[in-house]
Amino acid sequence: MIQFLNVSKTYDTNLALRDINLSIEKGDMVFLTGPSGAGKTTLLKLIYAAELPDSGKIYVGEWNTGGLDSDSIPLLRRNIGIVFQDFRLLLNRNVFDNVALALRVRKVPENEVKARVMDSLKIVNLRHKTDSFQGTLSGGEQQRVVISRAIVAEPAILLADEPTGNLDRDTAAGIMKIFRYINAKGTTILIATHNRELFSNTGKRVIRLMAGSITGEAKG
């Protein structure tokens, strides 16, 4: 589903990723771990073509992200749901419209949008917050809105960058439960986190990044 072949990426003179070789199969749930600055976010950005590799090749499904023209990038991104570290919720839209956005960019007919948004909000247990705006939501609720937006279009791949960053243990556990549920439905998930608790005892693949290189792999 996702394949990195000898991928390197440098920002100015700072090496972000060095010679990464990685393969993630369809339906997998994989954790990417390592300290801050290890290159986790860069690796995710390379998958959704927010960054391009300096060398090497990246395949996401049928796409070679390095060789995409700018008109194909939106099409690639429609196959990927992203849980951003900084949420990226639109302040001037309520919860419903924020989640619906993922469907509307995919040109899903309006008569389907409502039902699908409500289903997605049900998964994250936020159906009662449809009319709320970001400012009135707690950190955990905002994170769940972002997850709802990421899964509403039922993408083949879900990327999550520090999805439990500032959340308490219980909320983090709740979010992991949602990820497991989505994964069980067949979505390939890649979670970047430095929180060991998230992957310990999960039995899932954990890839360790350090200073831009993969330094090890284990089962959580």
């Binding site: 939106p74 099409l75 990226r88």
Partner: peptide
């Protein structure tokens, strides 16, 4: 601009 950036990352086309 932030809103446009988010739309791009969600898969929106230029026209959208």
């Amino acid at each position: 601009r932030e809103e446009m950036e988010t739309l791009k990352l969600l898969g929106a086309t230029r026209g959208f």
